[in-house]
């Protein structure tokens, strides 16, 4: 699966446009226009997609399977019920994958979500959780 990222894009549509240039080079379906589901989740016709951003960095994941991603600065505070940032990002990524978004009731209850995601630390000081998706992960700066 693919994750495109940039720290110079104004929004996810701009990131998608840059990603589409790369996708057309490698002959993959394009993202095109990003629309929104009723609950705010981003949608595109050709891919399962998830978007996350923090501190001016936007990441956009594309997969043939449902996928959710979440990036956070490692040193941010999380609710004590969620224990640590690894569990928080896993939870967010997981809930984005299921298409439901985070639920306050689940946050209050806490729980171990770390097995729902894989973790990547390729940006210094940040943790990226990826839930779902498939195959080898390629991260591409555009």
């Amino acid at each position: 699966m693919l994750i495109f990222f940039s720290d110079t894009c104004a929004d996810s549509q701009e990131l998608a446009e840059r990603a589409d240039k790369a996708l057309s080079v490698i002959g993959k379906p394009l993202i095109g226009k990003i629309t929104k589901k009723e609950n705010g989740a981003p949608l595109c016709s050709n891919w399962n997609m998830s978007i996350t951003h923090t501190d001016g960095i936007i990441l956009l994941a594309l997969s043939s399977k449902p996928v959710g991603i979440d990036i956070e600065r490692e040193d941010r505070e999380v609710p004590s019920s969620m224990v640590d940032m690894k569990n928080w990002t896993a939870y967010e990524a997981y809930r984005k994958k299921t298409g439901e978004g985070i639920k306050l009731s689940e946050v209050r209850e806490g729980g171990d979500y770390t097995r729902e995601a894989e973790f990547h630390y390729f940006i210094d000081g940040y943790i990226l959780a990826v839930a779902g998706g498939e195959g080898a992960l390629f991260t591409i700066c555009v």
Partner: peptide, 11 residues
């Protein structure tokens, strides 16, 4: 405010 901020604020 992102989703984590909102959760922290609400709690």
């Amino acid at each position: 405010a992102d989703s984590l901020d909102m959760v922290e604020l609400v709690m």
